[in-house]
Nucleic acid binder design. Sequence first.
DNA 1: CGATTATGCTCGGGAAGCGAGTTTATTCAA
DNA 2: TTGAATAAACTCGCTTCCCGAGCATAATCG
Lengths: 395, 395
Amino acid sequence: MSASTETGREPGRARVDRWRTSAEVLAEVRRTPGLTRVELARRLALSSASVTETVTRLRGTGWLCEHRAPVQGRGRPTTSLDPAPDGPRVVAVDLRHEDWRVGLAGLDGEVTGVVGARHDRDPARVTTALRDAVATVAGGHRAVAVGLAAPAPVSADGLVRATELAWEAVDLGSVTACLGPGPVPLRVGNDATLAGVAEARTGAAAGAATAVYLTVEVGLGGTLLLDGLPHLGAHGAAGEYGHLPFGDPAQRCACGATGCWGPEVDGRGLARRLGDPVPDDPRSYAGDVLARAAGGDAAAADAVGVAAAALARGIAGVVHVHDPDVVVLGGLARGLRAAPGFDDAYVGALMAFRRDHPVPVLDAVHGDAGALHGAAALALDHATSPEGLAERSGE
Amino acid sequence: MSASTETGREPGRARVDRWRTSAEVLAEVRRTPGLTRVELARRLALSSASVTETVTRLRGTGWLCEHRAPVQGRGRPTTSLDPAPDGPRVVAVDLRHEDWRVGLAGLDGEVTGVVGARHDRDPARVTTALRDAVATVAGGHRAVAVGLAAPAPVSADGLVRATELAWEAVDLGSVTACLGPGPVPLRVGNDATLAGVAEARTGAAAGAATAVYLTVEVGLGGTLLLDGLPHLGAHGAAGEYGHLPFGDPAQRCACGATGCWGPEVDGRGLARRLGDPVPDDPRSYAGDVLARAAGGDAAAADAVGVAAAALARGIAGVVHVHDPDVVVLGGLARGLRAAPGFDDAYVGALMAFRRDHPVPVLDAVHGDAGALHGAAALALDHATSPEGLAERSGE
DNA sequence: CGATTATGCTCGGGAAGCGAGTTTATTCAA
DNA sequence: TTGAATAAACTCGCTTCCCGAGCATAATCG
């Protein structure tokens, strides 16, 4: 997750600083659409004079619009601030192993006009297809940034190294080429990370200062979200929760370590418990087992119960380390949470002082649109930052 | 770790904002004492005119002083910026189970004039003794904040609940009573957390954007440090690394959970492995075993090796989750790291892609002064923040 | 319909930061 | 020794943010 543009012009502090309050206002409106001017002034400790000035500017640049707020009691009615329906847009891209989706979002983060297609994994052809789709989706609107979710680790320079696609350091910078005028910034993030971002902004963890997002697909991954921002680590490799050694030390993981948590709770773990060979597609295998367990298959239910308990026990450990406001589960983890025994295993694995008020473990609400929503949020973060606003202020 | 004062006066944005650049300058000088004006202007993207103005102000308030910088080549020589030797001070307090220490620090963070005494754990008497010691240590200097390290969880309101001291929600606010003029803010933090802060600022993790500090005393605790700031979690309870279930699930931990990592790597784990009863003082028991192992006692060495391997394996897991720049070890963990087999166990437990460049695991450099240094850093953080500077700007 | 109340707008002023031009302090070369 | 070259700091006028105070506005209440 990183910027692909770098502004190098020197003194520049005032040029960016000018937009700091505007950026805070936009962030507040994103967090709470329909906010009143009075409430905004209170939250940002601004005088009404300053609110007038800043809101006027943001209406002028097209970001905000105002509505009469419903009257409550005496006094002059205040107005509420909302994302302008015809304001600047960002393009969100979700690149997956076999297909991609592209959509358009405004300040409210709603992704609309989604188009998609399958792809053949050839970097050049995928890049071209995405560039065209981005241009089409943006058509007519003022697109000010692009966010992209990639099914792979993303290094600090924004390059994508997708081993499963056999991509080595692919630079996706050109997908913004048909936008403009002027260069349009691209921000790239990992798909699981961005799904976590989506949950932390508008999903099950909305408003949480500290949230943990965990998802089970093939293996287990996740993100620590601090005030809605993912912790990426020194090299962008943070969040490998699936390789915490919570499991059986005798089991060797494909990652090279032993006793990893991930392979105990995904399709491979279920297969081992059921005596099946390692499945080719652990994702759909696990879906089948969950369905059989729900349908009354005792052996499947037993295997699911073991995996659910392993998931629950590990989540407790993660809670001890992060002390989050909430843990959000995506992918197959939702099915495991629904298994009988999960809650008891979770509470039982918590430290005693936590058991009266266990940290809630909730299902993700964005489903498989999480990465796309997170990509939109990432692009909006840039576009509404002081730097992003300053970049475009000349227009 | 939290503020004990709360400024509630409303609009106030400009009043605080005025000091934002000054705060950034002070932060830069703390990070890099002896910084030149030119380098400062470059880092903060300030014009030389603005540097002149800000530095003049900070010299006026006594925080900074300037020296001729050594000349390099042609041109007018620049000056270097340093903490003023007679500038504002903060008081650092380290409250431990059986004694306390109080010292004085300037902008450079060096703690001097340390005094200390044993105490009897009575909250009222300890508070009084600390109040007097703080006044004595500060005597004559302009003390602008107090930082305190407590051997207990610290809740968001700054109250200390030290179960081992039988303290329930003790308010230490009065230790600043003899300072002044005006109320002097007190910031309170957990001792292990603050030891981590000290390492992240001026210790083995200096400059790291992401660092993990782990310490073994009785059990295992730690902190995730992001840009030198500890992640405290939703309720200030983050960092219970010792209760990650890396251990034997058949072992019940005193915390109520099973298989906790902490009891496997401390004195209790060593005793179990050696067939000894649970020691009354696991800390000194572990010290003895480490000494015996170093002296050639095979049984002790074996037990130490097992604990060191358990520590190493868990650290690898923590690395997978946080992807830190560095892991820093304090307390008994340093002795375990020195045991033969630690490095092999660590690298072997890493994911394969990490083994070529394993995240360094280093010893803490602050020793048992870490908490005191961290407390000074905490107080300086407040005093040099825009809010802290604005608070005192009337004087 | 006026009193009351809460809010938004206008205007002058304080302060941060900047750009451009000027001054200052040093090295280097004749 | 002296002056050119160089790099940095200072001065000054300007722009912009934010503020406070006062005025204008739009609702409810009696």
